[in-house]
Simulated scan of single mutants.
Amino acid sequence: MDSDNSQNGEKNISFQNKENSMQPLSTIPTSVTLSAEQFERLYLTPMTRRQAPLTKQLGNPTPLALGGFVITTTPLSCCLMAWRGASGNGIAFIGPIIFLGGLLLLITSILEFILGNTFPCVVFGTIGGFWFAFAATMIPSFNAAAPYSASATDTAAGLASAGFMNTYVSAFLFITMAVLMLIFMICATRTNVVYTLIFLSLLLVFLLLSGAYWDLGEGNAVVGERCVKGAGAALFVASLLGFYLLIVQLFESLDFPFRLPVGDLAVMWKRKQYKNTQIDVEESAAIGGE
């Protein structure tokens, strides 16, 4: 019995020595707090009051929308510029427009809504919805263009008819989208230069397409085709800017040792931020006094 007790005592002493020799456990942080500048660069929206709690735990969905945007707009812009004999004004890209443009942007819009990022949610949701509507118009089963043809059943002829161009394409949809891009461009001045230039390019795209289809509807083929190519060039610029912004965000998310410039426009709004900070301080002081 004495030998057993001594052996057990030795085992306990050796186990305690091993525990003492082991390094103490350290707590690994599961969330990351971003600075206001990093938040604006990653989410393309200013951190007006405080950082949303979910942004410290969930991934950033914004690059997903940028990826869907550039994959769709780049080939479409080449088509509008008629590179390598491309034609059809986007009919051949119905699949990518739906599943790469519309779907990815809509998913990102929902995720931005969950994170509480209102501006990216509205931007990605409306542009994604536009891609769905644009593609649906060209799908024969939706019967959007066929009634404008002579036989009332030919979608291709309906898309090229003057009535369709003057009614759906230029007079309503593209002009409305141009107004929306103008609003987005003004709001984007709160973030950075690259994001603002993307909306400026898209504004030119919709204005040129509106003029193009109006001229084509009136029989001015030469002017109309030039406007279509100009819209393609503006869309190509927007896609290049989108690629650049996508690279910036991916580098930022992976914590690369360098940062690419985006032209931060927060300097224009420092005075406004200072006023908001003063209001927050005054409110906190009032609450503390109570």
Results as ranks from 00 to 15, higher is better:
residue 105 L to D: 10
residue 84 R to K: 10
residue 254 L to R: 15
residue 33 T to N: 07
residue 167 T to Y: 11
residue 212 A to N: 09
residue 177 M to P: 00
residue 194 V to M: 02
residue 182 L to I: 06
residue 125 G to R: 08
residue 61 P to Y: 10
residue 93 F to I: 11
residue 206 F to L: 05
residue 233 A to K: 02
residue 96 P to I: 14
residue 200 L to N: 01
residue 213 Y to E: 04
residue 126 T to V: 10
residue 166 N to P: 00
residue 121 C to G: 04
residue 289 G to S: 12
residue 132 F to W: 07
residue 113 F to L: 03
residue 184 F to S: 03
residue 77 S to K: 03
residue 2 D to L: 07
residue 138 M to E: 06
residue 75 P to C: 00
residue 46 P to F: 08
residue 37 E to R: 06
residue 158 G to F: 12
residue 89 N to H: 13
residue 240 L to D: 00
residue 39 F to C: 04
residue 36 A to I: 11
residue 154 D to V: 13
residue 37 E to S: 14
residue 183 I to N: 06
residue 18 K to G: 02
residue 157 A to W: 02
residue 201 S to M: 13
residue 191 T to W: 05
residue 241 L to R: 05
residue 282 E to A: 13
residue 250 L to G: 00
residue 26 S to Y: 06
residue 160 A to Q: 10
residue 102 G to V: 11
residue 126 T to N: 01
residue 39 F to V: 03
residue 206 F to Q: 07
residue 40 E to Q: 07
residue 281 V to A: 11
residue 38 Q to E: 15
residue 26 S to R: 08
residue 62 T to R: 05
residue 165 M to N: 15
residue 13 I to Q: 06
residue 106 L to E: 08
residue 226 R to A: 05
residue 166 N to E: 09
residue 108 T to G: 07
residue 184 F to D: 09
residue 230 G to E: 13
residue 271 R to W: 04
residue 203 L to F: 15
residue 159 L to F: 14
residue 83 W to M: 08
residue 128 G to A: 11
residue 165 M to V: 01
residue 171 A to N: 12
residue 58 L to Y: 08
residue 247 I to F: 06
residue 208 L to Q: 12
residue 100 L to V: 02
residue 88 G to P: 11
residue 61 P to M: 02
residue 18 K to Q: 14
residue 264 D to M: 03
residue 189 T to V: 08
residue 279 I to Q: 13
residue 143 N to M: 07
residue 54 L to T: 14
residue 189 T to R: 09
residue 265 L to W: 03
residue 240 L to W: 04
residue 194 V to T: 12
residue 223 V to H: 10
residue 159 L to E: 09
residue 123 V to K: 03
residue 187 C to M: 12
residue 281 V to G: 01
residue 253 S to R: 12
residue 174 F to G: 00
residue 249 Q to I: 15
residue 92 A to I: 11
residue 51 Q to F: 03
residue 280 D to H: 11
residue 55 T to M: 05
residue 13 I to S: 04
residue 213 Y to I: 14
residue 113 F to R: 03
residue 64 L to A: 06
residue 51 Q to M: 07
residue 88 G to A: 12
residue 28 I to L: 09
residue 143 N to H: 15
residue 76 L to C: 04
residue 196 T to S: 13
residue 94 I to L: 07
residue 192 N to E: 05
residue 120 P to G: 06
residue 4 D to W: 02
residue 162 A to K: 15
residue 57 Q to D: 00
residue 125 G to Y: 12
residue 224 G to Q: 11
